[in-house]
Amino acid sequence: MNKGPNTMLAHLPSSAPDLVVDGRPDTTPDVIDGVAYARLYGEPLFRMPTDLYIPPDALEVFLEAFEGPLDLLLYLIRKQNFNILDIPMAQVTKQYLQYVDQIRLHNLELAAEYLLMAAMLIEIKSRMLLPVRKADTGEEAGDPRAELVRRLLEYEQMKLASQQIDALPQLGRDYVRTQIYIEQNTVTRWPEVDIVDLQAAWADLIKRAKLTAHHMISREELSVREHMTSILRRLQSTKFVEFADLFDPTRGVPVIVVNFVALLELAKETLIEITQAEPFAPIYVRLAYAPS
């Protein structure tokens, strides 16, 4: 809608000449019961302005609005129930050109796109009037309307899809998201721990502790002389002691090793005797015989 130039109206003096409406003088009184019948920009208005301008195209009503040449062409075909696969080009082109002529009177830039489609329709109609010629391969030429029909069908599918999407509820158009602030005091409530959860947490802790465990090697002070004394004291109370009875496996390998070394030292110093009756017979240990 076009708007005319803005007009600043001031308070008109009461001596202004009367207006002429339809060849007769305007008999509207300057003041109606002492009150202006209208206000313009805060100023009282006591008579119709003499320089009021309303452009001829101030109000235009479009019964149908189209989004492009294909939309207009599809509208003309569907409105008259034409078969889109067998379009009567003469009637459709005539109606199309009538609409384009109306557009050219108001908006030449908008009409350019429609004129391109009009030229395409005229070309198709001209090709249909020409005699059909066979191609070099011997096949008959296709229908000149085939490409136009393909474009119309694709456009119609896209238009229907857009209408279905537009029918879906949209935020800001069909509904408004509300936000309500509620001020309340909350008390922290800790969740209750079940015994099963506590057991699982403890098992997980033990599992992680085993993964980070270190093997510590401690050094134990063992004396060969002490073990030599212990062996001599035991042999003093008995004549023969079986070799295996001199060792205590429960005390560990280091003690057994030191005890064996002590036994060898005693044999080396001829303080004890290690005897065996026959091969593979038990080994016995006794004190060494000392002649008087």
Rank of each mutant, 00 (worst) to 15 (best):
K3M: 08
L9T: 05
L9M: 09
L12C: 09
S14V: 10
A16M: 14
L19E: 07
V21R: 13
V21T: 06
D22Y: 07
D22T: 08
G23P: 04
D26N: 10
T27G: 00
P29E: 06
D30K: 12
D33H: 08
D33T: 01
D33S: 08
L40P: 00
L40M: 07
G42A: 04
P44G: 11
L45T: 08
R47H: 09
M48V: 10
M48L: 13
M48F: 12
Y53S: 13
P56A: 05
P56H: 03
A58R: 07
F62S: 14
F62N: 11
L63Q: 08
E64L: 11
E67S: 14
G68I: 09
P69C: 06
P69D: 02
Y75W: 12
L76N: 03
N81Q: 10
N83F: 07
L85M: 07
P88V: 02
P88K: 03
M89L: 15
Q91L: 12
Y96L: 02
L97A: 14
Q98P: 00
Y99E: 11
D101T: 11
Q102L: 09
Q102I: 01
N107G: 01
N107I: 00
E109R: 05
L110F: 00
A118Q: 11
M120V: 04
I124V: 15
R127T: 06
P131Q: 04
P131A: 08
V132H: 07
R133L: 08
K134E: 08
K134P: 00
E140R: 06
A146Q: 14
L148S: 06
V149M: 04
L153D: 07
L153R: 14
Y155A: 13
Q157C: 03
M158V: 07
L160N: 13
A161C: 03
Q164R: 13
I165M: 07
D166M: 10
L168H: 06
L168W: 09
P169Q: 09
Q170V: 04
R173L: 03
D174S: 01
I180C: 02
E183A: 13
E183G: 09
T186R: 08
W190Y: 13
D194C: 02
I195K: 14
I195D: 15
A200D: 13
K207W: 02
K210D: 14
L211P: 00
A213D: 14
A213N: 10
A213I: 09
H214L: 10
H215V: 14
H215D: 12
R219Q: 15
S223D: 15
R225E: 15
M228A: 11
M228T: 04
I231G: 01
R233H: 05
L235R: 02
L235C: 03
S237I: 04
T238Q: 15
K239N: 11
F240N: 14
F240V: 10
A244I: 00
D245E: 15
F247Y: 11
F247L: 12
R251T: 12
P254V: 12
I256Q: 09
N259E: 07
F260E: 06
E265T: 06
T275I: 10
Q276D: 05
E278R: 11
A281S: 15
P282A: 13
R286Y: 01
L287P: 01
A290H: 09
P291M: 05
S292T: 06
